[in-house]
Amino acid sequence: MVDWDLAVSIGSKLAGEGPTVRLDEAAKAVAELRAGAERSTGLVRDFTGLVARDHSAPVLVVDRPGWVQANADAFAILLDPIVAKLTEKKPPSGITAAVGSKITGAEVGGVLGFLASKVLGQFDPFHAPDGRLLLVAPNVVHVEREIGADPTDFRLWVCLHEETHRVQFTAVPWMREHLFSQIGKLAETMEPSNALEDGIERVMRALRGRGEGGTGSGSLIDLVGSPEQKALLDGLTGVMSLLEGHADVVMDGVGPQVIPSVAKIRSSFNERRKGVGVLDRLLRRLLGLDAKMAQYRDGAKFVRHVVDKAGMNGFNVVWETPDHLPSKAEIADPDAWMTRVLAT
């Protein structure tokens, strides 16, 4: 259903190479990112109390095409249950299959190409056996130059956030399987009928509504889903808000101890997160990146509230079982989560 080779080819071309960097500067950036990831493991463990095995997931410092390839591989694994379900219900054949895979490949490539110039780092939990940590060197260099950050400080700051995600998945081994199971349930709800056409029409109506003062998000994720799918997506949103917010809290908790210019970095980076230009903002909205920014904010508020009230040990109960994960509603109401999970 997706021509992944075409997606990688288009995505790599759209992403570009990034900033011009001398060979010695590039070598230094790669070395500092690797060292920052290594150093962050102990810092995250000491702050959170989560214990992950050292070197349990490889660290890859990549360029933009390397990130595109890695994410195409991850998407192929992630979408496998959905693709299997859709092809079981309505197997594509002949010219429909050939043309359809090219169209979806081009669409995925366009998304990857846009994101490949934005992402600084990422933990890929779906790479067997324990996931892998990706750090996108040209983007790190581009952003540190753009906001005038101290390069060594900024690189460690990025590593702290991404290493927290590595610790989350390797210290909580059921997390990966839980996400897979939720995606499998989402696949069960998929129908191969006119969902794409209907979804595009709803997206366009929502975007027109925003231009006319409407309040819809305009996100493809929000607009294409049925009520059942939205319920599953709400559960996944709760998990992702927890993971992203927790990583932000760790960054802000550890940062002042080891990164002298962390306050300046945080202030400048928060401003940059808002996006620049009309096209950039539109693409962010369509791809759900506005919602992604809300996940950082809402998840961090949830984590800070629970830690303030129950301490880090109390908060860490969230990692004991999937039943302890907060829902989307509980992310917004941490006291409700504490009543449900910590009442005893």
Rank of each mutant, 00 (worst) to 15 (best):
L236V: 02
K28D: 13
P326C: 04
S12H: 06
M1N: 09
Y296N: 07
A231Y: 04
A106N: 11
V108P: 02
W319M: 03
R53S: 11
G288E: 12
A72I: 03
L196V: 15
V8A: 08
F126R: 00
G94H: 06
S267I: 13
A187G: 15
L287I: 09
G110A: 13
D63F: 03
V2F: 12
Q69R: 10
G211D: 15
H305C: 03
D73L: 03
G275C: 15
H324Q: 03
L43D: 06
A31N: 13
E201T: 13
L233W: 10
I331H: 05
L196F: 13
L179Q: 01
D323S: 06
A247R: 08
P227W: 11
A7P: 09
E107Q: 15
V249H: 07
D5G: 04
V254K: 10
R205N: 14
E162Q: 12
A291M: 12
I82K: 09
D222V: 13
T321C: 01
N194W: 09
T104C: 12
R340W: 00
H305M: 01
T170F: 00
G245I: 10
D63P: 02
E25I: 12
V341Q: 02
Q295R: 14
K292F: 09
G184K: 06
S267H: 13
S217P: 14
E228Q: 12
R176F: 00
V61I: 07
T189P: 02
A206K: 10
G216T: 15
D124L: 00
I265A: 06
G253M: 11
V59S: 05
Q122Y: 00
A97M: 05
V276W: 15
A74R: 01
Q229Y: 05
K328R: 13
I265W: 09
K274D: 13
W67R: 03
T344M: 00
R53V: 01
W4N: 03
G311S: 09
D333E: 06
H142M: 10
L43M: 11
L115F: 03
A31K: 14
A29F: 08
D298K: 10
G100F: 05
D280S: 15
V306R: 05
A329C: 02
L279N: 14
G311A: 08
G235E: 12
V59W: 03
S40V: 05
S117L: 04
R166E: 07
M338D: 00
P138D: 07
T164V: 11
A332D: 07
R340S: 00
S56G: 06
R34A: 08
D46H: 07
V258M: 08
V254S: 10
G311E: 07
W174P: 01
A76I: 01
L289V: 03
R145Y: 04
L50D: 05
W337A: 00
P334V: 04
L207E: 15
P19M: 09
P92E: 08
R340G: 00
L43V: 02
P192N: 11
G299P: 11
P19N: 10
L325D: 03
K102I: 10
F302N: 09
M175N: 01
R132T: 01
G36V: 07
V167H: 04
P192Q: 10
M251C: 11
